[in-house]
Simulated assay, not measured.
Amino acid sequence: MNLMTWCKAAVTASAAVVLSAGPAWAAPSNSDLDVVRIDPDATFPGGETSLHAFVANLGPETTNSTMTITVELPRGTEAKAPYFPDDCEASGNGRRVRCEFPAGLKARRTATAIVPIHLDQNLRPGTVLEGSFAVHSPDDRNPLNNRTTFEIRVIEPDSSH
């Protein structure tokens, strides 16, 4: 076998190994991601509060894929950086925030996206605003517990504000 024939054979064999091995990602796990409702603290018109978008992996397995938490804020509010994690992204109008978490959330563990929220100064005290958040991941096997609502109560400003 001459050198050229040997090189072609080696390249063909290497390509066959790479193609048969498939992509370098893991199959989705058997996980149940569950969102937990935690209402932000009440605040006054023009004030600030924070949403803790809390997600638990009920298991039985550690996640093999990323998960995304998407927060939908009500009218009269706007998300304000800094977020946690710091790579969360807000939409142009500041009412939708997407936060991506890496694979590896162990069973019986939690992850939280923190979104600071600014309330419009023209909101009326006594108003109750409703938003929502959801989690999405190829690993999640139970879509029935992936979304929840939350409420922000608008209160009278006190003399310290």
Results as ranks from 00 to 15, higher is better:
Met1Tyr: 14
Asn2Glu: 14
Met4His: 07
Met4Ala: 13
Cys7Ile: 06
Val11Lys: 05
Thr12Gly: 15
Ala15Thr: 10
Ala15Met: 15
Ala15Asp: 12
Ala16Thr: 11
Ala16Met: 12
Val17Pro: 12
Val17Ile: 14
Val17Phe: 10
Val18His: 03
Ser20Ala: 15
Ala21Gly: 12
Gly22Phe: 09
Pro23Tyr: 03
Pro23His: 08
Ala26Arg: 08
Ala26Cys: 03
Ala27Gln: 14
Ala27Glu: 12
Ala27Lys: 08
Ala27Trp: 07
Pro28Ile: 08
Pro28Asp: 02
Ser31Leu: 00
Asp32Pro: 02
Arg37Gln: 15
Arg37Thr: 10
Ile38Trp: 05
Ile38Phe: 09
Pro40Cys: 09
Pro40Lys: 06
Asp41Thr: 05
Asp41Ala: 13
Ala42Tyr: 13
Thr43His: 04
Thr43Arg: 05
Thr43Asn: 06
Pro45Lys: 06
Glu48Pro: 04
Thr49Arg: 05
Thr49Lys: 09
Leu51Lys: 07
Leu51Glu: 11
Ala53Cys: 04
Ala53Leu: 07
Phe54His: 15
Phe54Trp: 15
Asn57Tyr: 01
Gly59Lys: 01
Gly59Ala: 02
Gly59Pro: 00
Gly59Cys: 02
Pro60Glu: 02
Pro60Phe: 03
Thr62Arg: 06
Asn64Thr: 05
Asn64Ala: 10
Ser65Phe: 08
Ile69Glu: 04
Thr70Ser: 04
Glu72Trp: 06
Glu72Val: 07
Leu73Ser: 07
Arg75Thr: 13
Thr77Arg: 02
Thr77Gln: 09
Ala79Ser: 13
Lys80Cys: 04
Lys80Pro: 02
Pro82Leu: 10
Tyr83Lys: 09
Pro85Asp: 11
Asp86Thr: 13
Asp86Ala: 07
Cys88Gln: 01
Glu89Pro: 00
Glu89Gly: 04
Glu89Lys: 09
Glu89Trp: 00
Ala90Phe: 00
Ser91Asn: 01
Gly92Ser: 12
Asn93Gln: 04
Asn93Met: 03
Gly94Tyr: 00
Arg95Ile: 01
Arg96Cys: 02
Glu100Asp: 11
Phe101Glu: 05
Pro102Lys: 12
Ala103Lys: 13
Ala103Arg: 14
Ala107Asn: 12
Arg108Tyr: 06
Arg108Val: 07
Arg108Glu: 14
Arg109Asp: 08
Arg109Met: 13
Thr110Leu: 09
Thr110Lys: 06
Ala111Asp: 04
Ala111Pro: 08
Thr112Tyr: 04
Thr112Pro: 13
Thr112Asp: 05
Pro116His: 12
Pro116Asp: 10
Ile117Thr: 02
Ile117His: 06
Leu119Glu: 02
Asp120Cys: 05
Gln121Glu: 10
Leu123Trp: 02
Leu123Gln: 00
Leu123Gly: 00
Gly126Tyr: 12
Thr127His: 00
Val128Thr: 11
Val128Ala: 10
Val128Glu: 11
Leu129Ile: 03
Glu130Asn: 04
Glu130Val: 08
Glu130His: 05
Gly131Asp: 00
Phe133Cys: 05
Ala134Ser: 15
Val135Pro: 00
Asp139Tyr: 01
Asp139Glu: 09
Asp140Glu: 09
Asp140Ser: 07
Asp140Cys: 05
Arg141Thr: 11
Asn142Met: 08
Pro143Arg: 14
Leu144Cys: 10
Asn146Leu: 06
Asn146Lys: 10
Asn146Gln: 11
Thr148Met: 01
Thr149Arg: 04
Glu151Cys: 00
Glu151Tyr: 10
Arg153Ser: 13
Val154His: 03
Glu156Trp: 04
Pro157Ala: 07
Ser159Arg: 11
His161Gln: 09
